[in-house]
Amino acid sequence: MEESTAVSSKRVSRPAGRRAQVQASGTDTVGSEPIGSDPAGASGPVGSGPVGSAAVGSGAVGSGAAGSGPPGPPVGPPEPPSAGDAGSSTPATESGMGAGSGAATSQAPPEVSVGPQSPESAQPMPLDKTATTAVQTALRTENAAIWAYALVAASDKDDIAVTGSMVAAHRVRRDATAGLLVAAKQEAPPPAPAYRVPKVSNQAQARELAIQIESDCAAAWRNVVGSTDNADLRRLAAQVLLETANRLVRWRQLAKADPVTVAFPGER
């Protein structure tokens, strides 16, 4: 807690009145709420079980590197070099990222599908307070993912196509999630100017960061599943969790992690 508080004071400038989006480097999580600040994970049956412990912000990946040394965040431009742009002009080579089945197809197009449960095409989904908080946290995590993937692209030239397609998927998901909140007449938190991330200077670190990004997103969407009784929202969040888990495994394959799969994606 002390570390988190101390690092929080180093936050880069952000609009007043917004909740913290710049993650403390000591927690080694990209762009999410500080530990313990998520009401969705602290209330109801979810908060009392493993799901609550999987609240975004507990970053499990690369924890050794995060707290060491000065924070190495690129606090420069609000929007770093866009990896999505690079990816959109190159053919995607990743597989197994299709929305829906999660099955791998090596010739799959870039993953931009949001699935049949796209919030934009659906009726406004009523959200209670707990679900709203969880979805807002997920949106913040998606914003952070888009921002952080630019760093991945900058340090991992070999996987630029993979990165691009994944950024495109996160952009679509971000827009869909914002649309979901707006349709429910809830606030859609805007992206922060910058996020504090571990130092990324080579390909291995970039892949570790990508794994962390997807782990955070998986945790956020798993939290959404466990924060609501709305069947449609559960299905939507489960679908996103599935897509995120596939991206996570893709990065773990590239990083030659062992084991490649994770028994409970989104749980920490």
Binding site: V51, S95, A103, N223, G226, A238, L242, Q253, T261, G266
Partner: peptide, 24 residues
């Protein structure tokens, strides 16, 4: 809610199994 999150996580894991086992 707890079981929903658990089942969603397991389903996501199973999807990754299919991805890993798919012919490359």
């Amino acid at each position: 809610r707890y079981r929903a999150a658990l089942f969603a996580s397991i389903a996501a894991c199973l999807a990754t199994h299919r991805t890993v086992l798919a012919p490359s």
